[in-house]
Structure formats: structure tokens, C-alpha cells
């Protein structure tokens, strides 16, 4: 974990409104695991004031990529960056996905931009595990599958893939997935809630990557609590997560 000024390699709009920003950093590239995140200062001025957290989306050589859509001032500024500009980044932060283990089938479940961390995860495990990727979105033009393999898609409006939500699609297909399974998920809270309620009931090992408003990203502001199932209080999304075992935390 350190602060680094990294140089932007490229910023590209991969599909309507969805951007991939790539920076170069030898240290970050060597130190980063799937599911970890970076807190990016989008402007050298104090507007916007806080950094913006982004999970590592892909990693190739010394190049780290972040995927985002424009939904506020911070992401708007980032989308307008150009190759060669410098970006002040803190990372890698938090704990990533537990990709080691005895499981045979890795099941990715993502909703919307929740797909962001999975190209890198896919790259890390595709030679060792069978991967099944359940990707949901509002419609076909919001569906992002870049860097994802063996995709089962679902859209809210039925414009592509299964007509309905991605968790229902997973329930339909789960019996076709062989061997010991492990689920890796990220996406909107209602999706994660319905997914974890179900996987905790059926007893599939499952990890969930959470999002939360935060200021610092490394534990000092205490701004991003995740409530523990055992009633003992909170952990921090930034420092103890963002990836948690789905049995450990309450999603609400």
C-alpha cells in the first residue's frame, strides 16, 4: 500500500457510457490481487474533495485498468483524462477474493458495473478452475462482458440473454455446474442480498465484494461499516473487505 503518481496509458469508452482507464505502475502491478481496490484522486484541486475508490478491473504487465461509468463529478472528470496525464493513486487497498482453495467451479455473479473486478479474477484462475460467469444488466447495451469467459447473461428488459435477474438465472443453471463450487459476486445491494440469502441457505461457499461510501480507503475515517452476522458490531469495507465471506456480514 502506497501513494503513487501514475501515468495514464489510455482512457477509452468501451461501450456507451462505460470507460476503461489504464495506468502504468510496476509496484502496483506486482502487488495487486483480484478484488483489491485503489483510491484515486481525480483532480489535483480540492474539487471534488475526496478520492474515488475503484476495484482493479484488469492487469496486464505493468498496466492496471479500472472500469467505471459516468455517474457524478468524479467519474466525469476521470472520463475526460488523456493518455500521458498523471493520476495520484493510493493502493492496493483491502483484501481481495480468496481464489485459492479446493473448489473446482468458480461461479462469477455480477450485476451492472459489478462486473468490474472480474476480468482480472478470470485471468488469474482460468487455467486452474472451470469458470461460469453470470452477468446481469438493465439491457443489452449496459451488459459488459469484456474479459469475461463462459457468459450466462440476463437483462431486466430481455434485450439479450435471460429475461429477468441474474440470480434467478443462476438458480436455474446451478444443477448443471459440476463439482465443488465457489461463488464470487459483486453488484447492486438488492442483487447481493438476494444472492447471499440463497447461497447461505443452500450452502455454497461464497464471497461478495461490497461498495460503500468512504473517505480514506484504508481504515482511518471509519466511514464504511459492514455489519457482522454475529452481532459483534461492524467491520470496515475498505480495510477488512471489500471482499467478505457471505456468511460473515449482513447485506441490507
Amino acid at each position: 500500500m502506497r501513494i503513487e503518481k501514475t501515468q495514464i496509458v489510455s482512457v477509452s469508452e468501451v461501450q456507451s457510457g462505460i470507460f476503461i482507464l489504464t495506468v502504468e505502475s510496476e509496484y502496483f502491478a506486482a502487488a495487486t490481487l483480484p478484488g483489491q481496490f485503489f483510491n484515486i484522486r481525480v483532480s489535483e484541486s480540492l474539487f471534488p474533495l475526496l478520492r474515488r475508490p475503484f476495484s482493479i478491473s484488469d492487469l496486464t504487465g505493468k498496466n492496471l485498468s479500472f472500469m467505471f461509468d459516468v455517474h457524478g463529478e468524479g467519474t466525469k472528470i476521470l472520463s475526460q483524462k488523456r493518455a500521458g496525464e498523471w493520476l495520484d493513486i493510493i493502493g492496493p487497498l483491502g483484501h481481495g477474493f480468496g481464489i485459492e482453495g479446493e473448489y473446482e467451479s468458480a461461479i462469477i455473479v455480477a450485476g451492472g458495473l459489478g462486473v468490474a473486478p472480474f476480468p482480472y479474477l478470470t485471468k488469474k484462475i482460468r487455467n486452474k478452475k472451470k469458470i461460469y460467469s453470470f452477468i446481469g444488466a438493465r439491457s443489452s447495451r449496459h451488459l459488459v462482458t469484456q474479459g469475461i469467459v463462459n457468459v450466462y447473461s440476463a437483462t431486466d428488459d430481455g434485450t439479450t440473454g435471460y429475461y429477468g435477474n441474474v440470480v434467478d438465472l443462476l438458480k436455474l443453471k446451478i444443477s448443471e455446474i459440476p463439482g465443488i463450487k465457489k461463488i464470487f459476486s459483486c453488484g447492486p445491494t438488492p442483487m447481493l442480498k438476494s444472492l447471499t440469502d440463497w447461497v447461505n441457505f443452500v450452502g455454497i461457499e461464497s464471497e461478495v465484494s461490497l461498495e460503500c461510501a468512504m473517505a480514506c480507503g484504508f481504515g482511518i475515517c471509519q466511514g464504511c461499516p459492514a455489519e457482522l452476522h454475529d452481532g459483534s458490531g461492524y467491520k470496515l469495507v475498505c480495510k477488512d473487505g471489500p471482499v467478505f465471506n457471505s456468511q460473515e456480514i449482513i447485506i441490507s
Binding site: 474539487f47 474533495l49 475526496l50 461510501a213 473517505a215 471509519q222 464504511c224 461499516p225 461492524y234
Partner: peptide, 14 residues
């Protein structure tokens, strides 16, 4: 401490 949300960014502040 309090349940989330605990942090909100505001104009030049939080």
C-alpha cells in the same frame, strides 16, 4: 458506531 451511511461528500467538505 453508527450504521451506514456514515459519510457524505459535500461542496469543499464532507
Amino acid at each position: 458506531g453508527n450504521p451506514p451511511q456514515r459519510i457524505v461528500e459535500t461542496a469543499s467538505g464532507m
